[in-house]
């Protein structure tokens, strides 16, 4: 795995929490939203997204519920919990600090 791939994998929980901070979504919808917000830069496979969603749910940062969708099949909607919001806030701060420091260091 390249460094960039590792960085992308590490940032998956933060991206997912951020996307779900405003509204509940199902897996496919999260994928499309991520693609839209990052203008196609972040493309995620199901193999990366779904285990991340399940892990976040297991950690209590997300909760899920099955709801009837437009099609025949039900959809599993994920929404952020209060614990998830706190985690998002903290990770966001850390991430911003990391980027700022990284940029400063590289440009020095």
């Amino acid at each position: 795995m390249t460094q960039l791939q590792q960085l992308r994998k590490g940032s998956t929980p933060l991206l997912v929490l951020s996307i779900l901070s405003n509204e509940k979504m199902y897996g496919y919808q999260i994928m499309r939203e991520l693609e839209k917000r990052s203008e196609g830069y972040f493309t995620m496979t199901a193999a990366l997204l779904y285990p991340a969603l399940h892990q976040l749910e297991k950690d209590g940062l997300l909760k899920s519920e099955w709801q009837a969708g437009q099609g025949k099949r039900k959809r599993k909607y994920y929404s952020i919990t209060s614990k998830g919001r706190k985690s998002l806030e903290n990770t966001n701060k850390e991430w911003k600090m990391f980027i700022t420091t990284m940029q400063k260091t590289l440009e020095a």
Binding site: Y28, Y50, G69
Partner: peptide, 9 residues
């Protein structure tokens, strides 16, 4: 079920 719902979407 979750993956099949993804495929359907």
């Amino acid at each position: 079920d979750e993956l099949m719902s993804h495929i359907e979407s």
